[in-house]
Amino acid sequence: MSNSGALRPRVLVAIPPRFRERLFTQSAWQHLLALADVTVSPADGVLDTPLAHERLRDADIVLTGWGTYAQSGAWVEHAPELRAIVHAAGTVRFLVDESVFARGIAVSSQAEQNGRPVAEYSLAMILLSAKTVFRAEREYRAARTGFPIDSLTGGAFGARVGIVGASKIGRRLLDLLRPFDFDVRVYDPYLDADDAARLGATKVELDELFATCDVVSLHAPHLPETEGMIGAAQLRRMRDGAVFINTARGVLVDQDALVAELQTGRIDAVLDVTEPDVLPVESPLWDLPNVVLTPHLAGSVGNEVPRLGTEAIGEVARLAAGEPLRYPLTAQQFAITA
């Protein structure tokens, strides 16, 4: 894969048709065909089968995405010529392990692009929450005879917003928050005070963030050490009328503790993710009036999806030209990110 143009990369596309059609526009797909010798196999996107192993033998690049599946990173052993894995979606944790980086295989992920709409969704919910829109809407609807606007105590000016996790999404959200008159606090064990200041925030510990913020938005990665990181101790510290927003993963939160706190009516929540992702019909979260529940839609949906495919094909173009990846994932990043 030099920049001489003499060799075209051999790309194995392991994305099932139903996802491939959503990810790649016709023009993007034609761009890929012009760049490389493309094989689309296996049709079901499973990489650890005899057919997949046969196709992997000659691949320079494997293009993966939604619907690609592997039981472990062992499938890479069947790809002796593999130079890069280009993932047209977010996390690659279900596809690769540390051995990929040890072999020097480049990895590209669209986690950053998939995170753009998550940060935008979070910004919208923070603005509405700081304005106490959700609580006022409930009270207005219940009253039906008018609403005393002067009784509202919230407002965006000077509201304290807490961001849990200076991840790629967390950092993008921090940037989006800059034009607004918020007092922004951030918790991240890998962030120091100077880094936080450069991001436009004040670094605080987790318990302080929950105790002092009007809105808390969760953006930590799903790792073994982050499961259940938000529990009863943090939720009890939240101010009356505060709002908890989760667009990360439901498993990061002790859901029983969250339900118990919400049932008091003391706090509100905006939950785009839960544990499990689709709640059982008997879950109290369906009926609690102080919960805004959305079906894991903060990430790329609708016309946002082709952006992932177009950017992934851009990575293939860079590899074909011998240029650096725009969205590389390093071994160090893999260790601490989702």
Rank of each mutant, 00 (worst) to 15 (best):
A196S: 09
L127W: 01
V186E: 00
G241K: 05
R237W: 01
G162H: 02
R172M: 04
V133G: 03
I149E: 10
A166R: 09
R160C: 02
T247N: 15
I149T: 15
E205K: 06
L191H: 15
S129R: 00
D194A: 11
F210Q: 02
V215K: 00
D207Q: 11
L174E: 01
L152A: 03
E205N: 12
E205I: 05
V118I: 15
T153H: 12
E225G: 14
T132V: 02
A143H: 10
R144E: 13
S167T: 10
M238E: 14
A220N: 14
F210M: 07
G241M: 05
L177V: 13
N246F: 01
T226G: 13
E139H: 02
R185A: 13
G241F: 06
P148N: 07
R239H: 03
M125Y: 08
P179H: 13
A130K: 00
G146T: 07
D195E: 13
F157Y: 14
D150I: 01
F210H: 01
L128S: 10
M229C: 04
G154T: 01
E227P: 00
G228S: 11
F134R: 10
G115V: 06
H219T: 07
L199K: 04
G162N: 13
A124P: 05
G154R: 02
Y190S: 09
N246S: 11
D195F: 05
D183W: 00
D183H: 01
R171S: 11
S129C: 03
G158A: 07
L218T: 07
L177E: 13
G200W: 15
A248R: 00
K203E: 02
D188N: 12
G200R: 12
V216G: 12
G115Y: 11
G165M: 09
G200S: 09
G155C: 13
L152V: 05
R198I: 01
I245Y: 06
